[in-house]
């Protein structure tokens, strides 16, 4: 009798273990078996929104399920992040963002969440931070700017959005120069003031820089870790690369994340599938037309790079203050 009970008990334990062990594999194997909610924490029409919509155009072919895009802007993209954390950790709620919410959270005294409260699925792209100056000025080259800024400490005015300002502040710190940092709410406002001569230097993404160089502006520095492609670098007049100059700067990736408790198998599968989506010819064609570069960093590398970025942002925010 005792043996029967023991056998029955062991059988139940075995069944539970057997059911539990392949569970995550089974979950990952079936994943996704329903539409995936894709949180865009910015308004419709922006860069992140465009990325999400282009990804959704190929999701049915690759993922086998559609992406339900939800624009949840607000609180510097933190509202969408909070929403993602309130959903089950099953990989069916995905959050796509840029460094904006990380910077916002690092600037807050009492942030509603920590930048670490996410599991990074992958990076899909990144934008470089190009420092622009008007042509024909003493600061129209990086060496000229350093010389001018050292001779006139705190006089040179540099305008950019908070993301770009944070990144470039690190480059200025590394170069040992002091400039006046002027925050703008959008890159276009900063560039307009640069063209009007109201500020002396500005930072912009490479796509904006490409429209202005060489007629209206000179690209004097690539202020990110990532080098420019050979073609873009040539079109921008081969600006020096901050990393090559030995400066400590950060990257600005477009990252995709999920709830921090999501099983690793699901995250890895999502990462693989997104990588596959990025290889689709229709997606590549549209992104090429939009001037967006596809830079895929899978889950296994992206998490470490993200942690590094969070650290860099903390230092940049300290430099801004």
């Amino acid at each position: 009798m005792k043996m029967t009970w023991l056998k029955a008990f062991l059988a139940v334990v075995f069944l539970i273990c057997a059911a539990a062990t392949p569970a995550s594999d089974a979950v990952a194997g079936d994943f996704p078996d329903k539409p995936v909610t894709w949180i865009v924490p910015f308004k419709a029409g922006g860069g992140t929104d465009r990325w999400a919509r282009v990804l959704s155009s190929v999701s049915l072919d690759v993922l086998g399920q559609p992406l339900r895009i939800r624009n949840l802007p607000g609180s510097s993209a933190v509202r969408g992040w909070k929403y993602m954390l309130e959903q089950p950790a099953d990989g069916y709620t995905v959050y796509q963002a840029s460094p904006t919410p990380v910077i916002a959270l690092k600037r807050e005294k009492n942030p509603p969440l920590k930048p670490e409260q996410v599991k990074i699925v992958c990076f899909v792209s990144a934008f470089r931070n190009i420092v622009l100056a008007p042509p024909g000025k003493p600061w129209s080259t990086w060496e000229g700017l350093i010389k001018y800024a050292k001779a006139n400490p705190g006089k040179l005015t540099f305008g950019a959005t908070f993301s770009e300002l944070s990144g470039t502040a690190l480059a200025f710190n590394s170069a040992g120069v002091k400039v006046k940092l002027v925050p703008y709410s959008s890159t276009s406002d900063a560039v307009t003031d640069l063209l009007g001569g109201h500020i002396q230097v500005a930072a912009a993404t490479e796509s904006t820089a490409l429209t202005l160089v060489p007629d209206k502006a000179v690209a004097i520095l690539n202020g990110t870790k990532m080098p420019l492609s050979e073609k873009v670098s040539k079109e921008l007049g081969n600006p020096p690369h901050a990393t090559a100059l030995g400066y400590k700067v950060i990257n600005f990736p477009r990252w995709i994340g999920v709830h921090p408790d999501t099983p690793d198998e699901i995250v890895a599968k999502l990462s693989d599938k997104i990588g596959e989506m990025l290889k689709q010819p229709s997606l590549k064609k549209i992104m090429g037309k939009m001037g967006e570069e596809i830079i895929f960093v899978p889950h296994k590398d992206a998490q470490a790079q993200y942690d590094d970025i969070v650290k860099g942002v903390s230092e940049a925010v300290a430099a801004l203050n």
């Binding site: 308004k43 419709a44 029409g45 465009r50 919509r53 282009v54």
Partner: peptide, 9 residues
């Protein structure tokens, strides 16, 4: 702008 954004694709 919402209408334009949603129809952009």
């Amino acid at each position: 702008s919402t209408a334009v954004a949603l129809m952009l694709p």
